[in-house]
């Protein structure tokens, strides 16, 4: 029970982190006409952060409960 509450809290924290990563002003930092490996930075940032967030969510919730 305690552990599952901890998981829920971690996911809630990730929710808040996601809200910050995908909104003003963090978003504005990448809103410029530059590119990373040919991809515009804004586009690269959102997809990279998105994938990272999903990975951490998967790690948090699928971690062995032992």
């Amino acid at each position: 029970m305690y552990r599952s509450r901890l998981t829920a809290q971690r996911l809630a924290a990730l929710f808040l982190l996601g809200c910050v990563l995908f909104n003003y002003p963090v978003l504005a930092l990448f809103n410029r006409a530059a590119s990373v490996l040919g991809v515009p930075v804004l586009y690269a940032w959102i997809f990279a952060a998105w994938l990272a967030l999903i990975a951490v969510m998967a790690f948090v919730i699928e971690k062995r409960r032992d």
Partner: peptide, 16 residues
């Protein structure tokens, strides 16, 4: 993209 970022965030809250 916001249409798909929102559900991602919701799923983080989904456990609640």
């Amino acid at each position: 993209l916001p249409i798909y970022l929102g559900p991602t965030l919701m799923m983080a809250l989904g456990w609640f």
